[in-house]
């Protein structure tokens, strides 16, 4: 009822793929298989519902421009891994957690509240305050910077899509 049309096989396949991608990038999925599979199911539900993998532990607006920061992996994953050893959903965990040196728990929400996000969207700076030969773009997922007319279609470091880039300089 909660996940119509999503099969165990689909969850397994996505779980494996996310696990591979994570390890390749130096990240780790939560080793608690039941918990993690449930989150993967949530990601698949959201992908079906919204057309992108919105974070399963946050309410999506259903408008991509407003949800860009919470498309998994979200903008908040890395700061949360640094500070708490896990992302907000605990889909991704740090190597300290994998080694058993750090427990995983529910952590505070780093994403700003709706009103603040709205204000930030209204006043979003377009960058370009410093004169450079090329604009500099920043990947909001992994922090990769590149100086080009346009950001790449896919981040060469973390594979985030072009719309996750912001103008940095």
């Amino acid at each position: 009822m909660i996940a119509p049309g999503i099969t165990d096989a689909e969850i397994d396949a996505r779980h494996r793929q996310l696990g591979r991608d994570a390890e390749e990038g130096g990240y780790h999925l939560n080793p608690d298989v039941a918990f993690t599979r449930n989150l993967v199911r949530g990601l698949l539900v959201n992908e079906q519902r919204y057309g992108y993998m919105a974070c399963p532990c946050r309410i999506a607006a259903g408008k991509k421009e407003e949800d860009l920061d919470i498309i998994c992996p979200c903008d908040y994953r890395d700061p949360d891994l640094n500070e708490h050893g896990a992302c907000y959903c605990a889909l991704y965990v740090s190597s300290d957690v994998i080694a058993g040196n750090l427990p995983v728990g529910s952590i505070p929400e780093r994403r700003p509240p709706r009103v603040e996000r709205k204000a930030a969207r209204m006043s979003r700076s377009t960058g370009g305050s410093i004169k450079t030969a090329y604009p500099v773009w920043r990947c909001r997922v992994c922090g990769y910077l590149c100086a080009m007319e346009n950001p790449p279609l896919v981040c060469p470091i973390c594979k985030a899509k072009q719309d996750r880039f912001e103008r940095f300089l």
Binding site: L39, G42, C57
Partner: peptide, 26 residues
């Protein structure tokens, strides 16, 4: 949220405690 892991754990905990409650999947 119907998709969220911590929500599922909280829901299971309320059930385990056996407390009368209401919930909504927003």
């Amino acid at each position: 949220l119907s998709t969220c892991g911590w929500c599922a754990k909280t829901k299971a905990l309320l059930k385990e405690i056996g407390v009368d409650h209401s919930f909504v999947y927003v």
